[in-house]
Simulated scan of single mutants.
Amino acid sequence: MLSYRHSFHAGNHADVLKHITQMLIIKKLKNKPKPAIYIDTHSGAGLYELAGEEAQKTLEFKTGITAIQKYQSEQQDIADYQQLTNEFIANNQYPGSPLIAANMLREQDKMVCMELHNTEIDNLRDNLSDFGSSATIAVHHRDGYEGLLAILPPVPARGLVLIDPSYEVASEYEQVVQTLTKGIKKWSVGIFAIWYPLLSNRAGKKAGLSEKMCQEIAQLDCKSVLNVVMHVTENEGDAGMYGSGLIIVNAPWQLDTDLDELLPGLVNHISADKAHGKGYVEWLKKAE
């Protein structure tokens, strides 16, 4: 499970969806002057070289961040994402979720980043240190699932947890559900955003596990569960990862509306398969 390196996939279509959603939630937390906390359980290196060997081997960023940078959007949230990432793209880099959060958080806010990979944790510390941030930042070399439950409930009591695993092993889908079950009990008002891949039958035993995980999360004891999904190609046997999504527990007000408005343009500019590219937002559980 420690062999995964996000540098091969940085800036791909999944990152675009994930990070735009992350930014939307952080913006909503900042609508109130009270401090907030951002917790990242699988932080990775925080910054990735698009000219590096790993990114150049897959070139996944070309159908992700490169494609979206050419999009002349009237949506302010997409424009904000383009503006934030432009500064990195100019240096052939792409920011991971920790640096995106560090860029957005205020002086009164806190950030906790966790990473278990021995090399990535050093890279993360260096990248966050070099970047600098107004927020108070703590970096932990530890398992994100264990670490999350250890620090909940956090101070301040408002905030977002981003759970972004590699899902290298099939058991990790169930580990997400188990961690969420305990996490919600400890922090019922927290926002939890969980990224997941959509895999075709080529993935073998992992095919369908994301959908099963989403169904199980919808049954948890929480106020609401929102699902945002983006397909970039058809779900065929050899498609591999044909899309991705995020499950948001306790989604903030009007997040569904914001995502629903920007998804069509996002899909249109990212999906090379125009016939099968699609995006949608659905409530798996809605607050009464």
Rank of each mutant, 00 (worst) to 15 (best):
T181H: 13
M213L: 07
Y196L: 14
D40F: 03
A79M: 06
I121W: 04
R158D: 01
K28Y: 00
E120N: 15
L116N: 12
H42R: 12
D143E: 04
T66M: 12
Y173K: 10
M114E: 12
Q108L: 11
D77L: 12
G265D: 07
N31K: 14
E211T: 10
A150R: 09
W187G: 00
C113Y: 05
G279P: 09
T179D: 03
E120I: 06
K286A: 12
I26E: 10
L149W: 01
N12V: 09
C222L: 13
I20C: 10
M230D: 13
T21G: 12
V112F: 08
T85M: 08
K28W: 01
G11L: 10
T257K: 05
T136L: 01
I247W: 00
L59E: 14
L24A: 11
G237C: 01
A101E: 10
S133R: 04
N103W: 15
A207G: 05
T257V: 00
W195D: 07
L209E: 13
L152F: 06
E49L: 14
Q108M: 11
D221T: 06
T181D: 14
N201E: 13
A203T: 01
Q72L: 01
L180N: 05
K70E: 13
P252K: 11
F61N: 10
E49Y: 09
V177F: 10
Q93G: 07
G245W: 05
T181M: 12
K186V: 05
V267T: 09
Y167C: 11
M230E: 11
E282I: 14
G245K: 01
G46K: 13
A135I: 07
K57N: 14
Y81T: 00
E49V: 02
N227V: 04
G144F: 03
Q82P: 04
G190C: 13
I20P: 07
H19E: 00
K274L: 15
T21N: 11
R125D: 08
G240K: 03
G52D: 11
A14E: 04
K212F: 00
A157H: 07
V155C: 00
F61K: 04
H6F: 10
L99V: 13
K70N: 10
N92E: 07
L160M: 07
P153V: 02
V177K: 03
K182E: 10
K186S: 01
Y71Q: 12
L59I: 09
K110C: 08
N118Y: 07
K34V: 05
P33R: 05
I163N: 05
L152G: 01
W283G: 08
Y48L: 08
Q175F: 01
D122V: 14
Q108Y: 04
L199S: 11
Q72V: 05
G204H: 13
I194N: 07
L262T: 01
H269Y: 08
E282V: 15
H6I: 11
P33D: 12
N91T: 09
S244E: 07
L99S: 08
S134A: 12
S129E: 05
E172M: 01
M104R: 09
R158Y: 02
H13E: 06
N123P: 03
W283D: 06
R202Y: 09
P165C: 11
Q56P: 10
I20G: 06
M213A: 04
E54Q: 14
M241V: 14
D238A: 02
A218D: 10
Q175C: 02
E172P: 02
D15M: 03
